[in-house]
Every structure is written in C-alpha cells, then in structure tokens.
C-alpha cells in the first residue's frame, strides 16, 4: 500500500482536504488538483495508481478530463465521484472504472478504491 499514489480532483478546497486526510490515513500518497485541466496536466506527467475525480468543476469538468486522460493513458484507473445519483443514465461516464456518489461517509469511496487497486 505504501507508495500508492492517488490524485484527488475537486474544485472545493474543503472536500480536497477531507479526502486527502481520509485517504492518507489509509496509507495512500495523495496529490491534489482543483479542476479537470489541472488533473489532466498532472496525470500526463505523473503515474497515478488511481484518480478520484469530481464531475462538476470549472475550467474543465470531470467527464471531459476523464475522456482526455483515457485518450493518453488508456489504462489509468479513474473513479468518478460526484453529487449526482443518476450517473447510470449518463453514458459518457461509462468509461470510468467506478462511480461513487459523493458522501460524508467515505467508506464506500475507500472500499471502491481498495477493490480497484486489488484488481490491478
């Protein structure tokens, strides 16, 4: 688990802080980005084991960033994490490896991350 690098992308500073603390507590190395474009830039230059991506963000939204990153790094695992619950309708989100509804309870997110990393 040591040395597992996760990029957390969210436009809300406090959300970033929350996820960073929660995930670091789990033993991951956490990097942050505050919008899709920044995430894309970082993802291009670094190898992340996983990216946790919000959808609704300024500059470049999560879906777009997801698609851009997947174009460059086809196997980059990405979890979409958003306030929306009706992700199942949105076919453009299908290329993500998982989807988690944003919640104060981070258990589901952590579980999903673990599952994805284990598969790899």
């Amino acid at each position: 688990m040591k040395g597992t690098k996760i990029l957390v992308v969210d436009d809300e500073e406090n959300i970033r802080l929350l996820y960073k603390e929660e995930l670091e507590e789990e033993g991951y190395d956490v990097e942050l980005a505050s919008n899709g474009l920044e995430a894309f830039e970082k993802a291009k230059e670094n190898d992340f084991d996983l990216i946790v991506m919000d959808i609704k963000m300024p500059v470049m939204d999560g879906i777009q960033a997801l698609n851009e990153i997947k174009k460059v790094k086809k196997d980059q695992p990405i979890i979409l994490c958003s306030a929306y619950g009706e992700f199942k309708q949105d076919f453009s989100s299908w290329v993500s490896d998982a989807y988690v509804v944003k919640s104060a309870d981070t258990d589901e997110l952590k579980r999903t991350i673990k599952d994805l990393l284990n598969v790899k």
């Binding site: 959300i15 929660e22 306030a83 919640s103």
Partner: peptide, 18 residues
Amino acid sequence: IAHEIKNPLVVIGGFANR
C-alpha cells in the same frame, strides 16, 4: 441548489466523522 448544498454537507459530515 441540491448540488450546491451537497458539497458543504459532505464537508460538514466528513469532518464530523473525522
């Protein structure tokens, strides 16, 4: 509105958890 409320709510709840 729901979307705007959701984020602060996650923050409140998340840190309360912490």
